[in-house]
Design a binder for these strands. Structure first.
Lengths: 130, 130
DNA sequence: ATTGGTTTTGACAATCATTATCAATAGGCG
DNA sequence: CGCCTATTGATAATGATTGTCAAAACCAAT
């Protein structure tokens, strides 16, 4: 049986409030900063659960950290991420979906999954961080 | 000044021999298994160098490890990777390049980089690992 | 509301990949 | 050949993540 705890809600809420992708460590710090005594291990568990049930997306930053984000839809989609401030734009990419499926099929691959993310500098950060 | 050492050559050779993407740890094990007394730190350094000079590609596995592979061209390209045996197919994706650039531009992002990789099961592995 | 059976939590230890340290070694130009 | 410096490698350090396990919290049923 799955139980609802204030900790899980706190993590979900913190994820919602975050503008873009956040690391587990960062989320834990944020929660602590707002007075929550939640444990680090619990944040990791909550994030893993959210990701497993599709309520959050996860990806690996180029630096090797796992980043998480609450996504507005359960549909499959991709992200445009500012590498400076973390702001995220959700993007549809039907063309890429089709392309990925075709490329996989052409080479005899099945059960194709794909990783498609675009990193850049958003309009606000471009002047600040050259 | 940059020097040529047998260690660097050993890493380059091991990368060439590998069929697909390999982790730094794995490459070190392989080298040791073939009798080379190369150090782990050196493998990491050699891989970082190769990646920096464009002789190798690197990506993050979904499990969070950094994987490396010697690539046949210096051109920008992407990969189709068997998640079971690691076999890799290099793929051109001009359409995706253009799409990525456009999407970034539409949202005011600059200096767009992108991560585009397709994971699946190759024809050989599909029957073995359902 | 109280109880009971489980799940969940959280402090801490353990693990894993990766990076830093630094004395010893080995390129390679003269 | 010899010197200077880049490179190596054993090990320690780091940092993120996961495992451990007793104590606390949740929820359904009394």
């Amino acid at each position: 049986m799955k139980r609802n705890t204030w900790q899980r809600e706190a993590v979900r809420a913190a994820l919602d409030k975050a503008e873009g992708f956040v690391s587990a460590q960062g989320l834990h710090s944020t929660l602590h900063a707002t007075g929550s005594p939640i444990g680090l291990a619990t944040v990791y568990r909550a994030l893993a659960d959210l990701a497993a049930e599709g309520a959050a997306d996860s990806l690996q930053s180029p630096e090797g950290e796992s980043l998480y984000r609450a996504c507005s839809t359960n549909d499959h989609h991709h992200h445009l991420i500012c590498r400076n401030c973390g702001v995220t734009v959700e993007i549809e990419a039907d063309a890429v979906e089709i392309w990925a499926r075709n490329v996989a099929a052409e080479h005899g691959f099945s059960q194709a999954a794909h990783v498609v993310d675009v990193f850049g500098l958003c309009a606000a950060c471009a002047p600040v961080a050259p």
